[in-house]
């Protein structure tokens, strides 16, 4: 089952591009939208989400995480997967304010988050997260 993904990468890196490349086949036919700035991402959330049900955030800064936490209302109904830059207490605490479905770390590669995306694509778990209402 194809995924419908909003992908936010404010700090591009080889690993980030690798993740984006790996997600591509799971979200074909225009089902993947990529944002390089928070402003663009925020503007997108102001529009209809349609079938979009999954948000992947690659390597956000602490400032990005704080800003995303402020968008919680607009992220309602979306399953959020975070790839954090580090596991410092502040980063982790901000990350949990987004109530993510999964957290991994940029330094750990993309295998784990791809395993989660693979499970979601098989189980149909990319349907809107039911209880973020």
């Amino acid at each position: 089952m194809a995924l419908d993904v909003l992908f936010l990468m404010t700090r591009p890196s080889d690993e980030g591009w690798a993740l984006l490349g790996a997600i591509g086949p799971l979200a074909p036919d225009g089902r993947l939208e990529v944002f390089s700035s928070l402003a663009g991402f925020e503007a997108r959330l102001r529009g209809p989400k349609g079938n979009r049900s999954l948000v992947v955030v690659w390597d956000p800064t602490v400032g990005d995480l704080a800003a995303l936490a402020g968008l919680n209302d607009r992220l309602a109904g979306l399953r959020i997967l975070l790839v954090l830059p580090d596991d410092g207490a502040e980063t982790v605490a901000l990350a949990h304010k987004l109530r993510p479905a999964y957290i991994s770390y940029a330094g750990d590669g993309i295998a784990e988050i791809m395993a989660v995306l693979g499970r979601l694509s098989v189980s149909g778990g990319d349907s809107p997260k039911p209880d973020r209402t």
Binding site: R79, A93, H96, R99, A101, Y102, E112, R119, G125, K129
Partner: peptide
């Protein structure tokens, strides 16, 4: 303090323990 979500439906079996 933290409100930590474990989305059991999203986790592959191989990742559950370390997660």
């Amino acid at each position: 303090r933290n409100f930590v979500v474990v989305d059991c439906a999203a986790l592959p079996e191989t990742l559950v323990e370390s997660t």
